Computed example of a mutant assay.
Amino acid sequence: MAKSLDFWYDGTMNFEKIEAAYELMLENIQLLQNQLTTNIYDAMIEQNMAYINSERTDKTILKNNANLKKMALSKEEWRRVYQFLFIKANQTEPLQYNHQFTPDSIGFILSFIMDSLLSEEQLEILEIGSGTGNLANTLLNNSQKKLDYLGIELDDLLIDLSASMAEVMGADLHFVQGDAVRPQLLKPSDVIFSDLPVGYYPDDRIASRFSLAAKEGHTYAHHLLMAQSIKYLKSGGYAIFLAPNNLLTSAQSSLLKHWLKAEAQLIAMVSLPETLFGKKELAKSIFVFQKQDEEKQEAFVYPLKSLQDPEILRHFSQSFKKWASENAK
């Protein structure tokens, strides 16, 4: 049985400890940034390595890391520490929009949807565009399932960040670097996640291999990633995407819908509050697809108007669990 969405506050976490750990990490990162004359993200990777290997000779860094180890942070406490560090870093050295981490509130919903749809206790999951690894850790820390996780990410900085953070946290995560639009040697997964990067894919030659490729100009990268993702799903598996609100009405949507008829069916769509994304044009919804089979099912459609109101979240979770018990396979 999947959790409801009443579990957002984890009473086992010590927020004073999280704040203290954040201050120690930040001091070390800023010291390393000055010593190495590098950006804050590379300094974060260096701090992760220093924490793991205790190889830095700087007395302050060694002392702070020793104190961090004494705190014995849980995986979820570590995840919160890193979130605060990314928020701080983003104030002076912003990551591009497609590299921003998926908000916790959405990550919890994605975890809840996965747990509600699948009865198996162990799942193989793949994340397309794993970024900083925040969504991966949200899933692993909050799902009631045992997850065998693999993330694929093109950006080498993000790969180094997510892998080094996972090692510090003791998280059982695996990452590979690569362009997810191009074919990869990956085993089939039960569930595929992606907070889809939005934009055009620059290589028209590669895009032309897909049936949903635009006839003229560049093809949407998020369309190509969706098409490639479905190939990595087991029969009956689920693809859970965070995608633009206009996914099914945009300029290239007719190509996408034609492809969907043959490959997958939309089984659920949950719209999210536009205020969560800052600008209306950046707003996304959750789209859940199932690898195509002959049996059609009634789609679950729900406008989730708030991620803060407990009653709205409770109604959503009850509605989805009821639908899943009647429709999910």
Rank of each mutant, 00 (worst) to 15 (best):
F289Y: 14
N65I: 04
I109V: 15
I61K: 01
N141E: 08
A264G: 02
Y200R: 11
L272R: 07
M165S: 03
K329M: 09
L62Q: 14
R205F: 05
D293F: 03
A43M: 04
R56L: 15
T275E: 14
Y22L: 04
Q83D: 11
F300G: 06
P202V: 01
I113V: 14
I113F: 11
Q91V: 08
E263Q: 13
L248Q: 11
E326G: 02
S254A: 13
L282V: 02
F175S: 01
S162L: 06
E298W: 04
M169F: 08
N64G: 11
A239N: 05
A262C: 01
Q122D: 09
F7W: 00
M114Y: 09
Q265K: 14
N245E: 13
S162Q: 14
G237F: 03
N137R: 15
S4R: 05
L110W: 09
N14V: 11
G133N: 04
A328M: 06
V301N: 05
R209M: 08
N141C: 15
K234W: 04
V301D: 00
I18V: 15
D195I: 06
S325L: 12
Q100I: 07
S271M: 05
K279Y: 04
R314Q: 14
K59M: 09
L126V: 08
F316L: 10
L5A: 10
D58H: 12
S162F: 09
E121N: 15
L140P: 00
A214I: 03
K146W: 00
N246S: 15
Q47I: 01
E27Y: 00
M13Q: 13
S306M: 08
A21N: 04
V176N: 01
F101W: 00
I312E: 13
Q228F: 09
S253R: 07
G129L: 09
E263A: 12
T138P: 00
L304R: 03
L31R: 15
H222A: 01
L225Q: 06
A213I: 07
Q228L: 06
G217P: 04
K322W: 00
K296R: 08
E76C: 11
I286S: 08
K231E: 15
S116T: 14
N137M: 13
G131P: 02
S4C: 06
A136E: 03
G151F: 10
L118E: 09
E19P: 02
A207F: 03
S105R: 03
L185H: 08
D204R: 15
M114P: 02
I29E: 07
K279T: 00
L260N: 03
D190N: 14
Y200F: 10
F7K: 12
Q265G: 01
L276C: 05
L139Y: 10
K280A: 14
I45A: 05
L225C: 07
P94H: 07
D160G: 05
N67E: 15
L32I: 13
D293E: 12
E311H: 13
K305Y: 10
F277V: 03
G133E: 05
L85W: 04
E93H: 08
S254P: 00
N53P: 00
K261W: 03
S111C: 10
V288L: 06
L85H: 08
L313K: 09
L247A: 10
K261R: 14
I152S: 05
E120D: 15
I159T: 11
L256V: 13
I40E: 02
